[in-house]
């Protein structure tokens, strides 16, 4: 299994999954903002995407030039199969890790 990802990279990875095919940096930024309330740095997101790409968890492609952005292309990112698998395992792990714990710390019995 791959080594644990830094927090922002994990956020970006999950955002890629949630956004499906339409993930470019602004959309990822908004998704993270919605989930965690942080106004992430766009450049930071690019750096995270860069790392994910290097580790084979994501890949990028240029869109066709779009009229509303002064004819500039967007760079879109997608999860690779490895990326999808990574998210699945992280989620399972997190579910196990947090089972039976409440944030305030008092114990709950298992059902």
């Amino acid at each position: 299994m791959a080594a644990a990802l830094p927090r922002l990279e994990l956020h970006v990875l999950v955002a890629l999954l949630r956004l499906g095919g339409d993930a470019y940096a602004i959309a990822i930024h908004d998704d993270i903002e919605q989930v965690s309330g942080t106004d992430a740095s766009i450049a930071g997101i690019y750096n995270a995407l860069d790392r994910l790409e290097q580790r084979g968890l994501a890949r990028s492609a240029w869109s066709d030039p779009r009229p509303e952005r002064g004819g500039r292309a967007r760079r879109f990112y997608k999860l690779t199969a490895a990326g999808r698998e990574y998210v699945r395992r992280e989620q399972a792990m997190a579910t196990r890790l947090w089972a039976g714990v409440s944030a305030s710390g008092d114990r709950r019995t298992r059902p």
């Binding site: 470019y24 940096a25 602004i26 930024h29 766009i42 450049a43 690019y46 860069d50 952005r69 002064g70 500039r72 292309a73 967007r74 760079r75």
Partner: peptide
Amino acid sequence: LLRALAPADVREALLADLDEGFER
């Protein structure tokens, strides 16, 4: 400054994204 600092391969995309965020 951002243009000078950004690596060439993501420069255009980054600046365009930031412009979009700015306009919003």
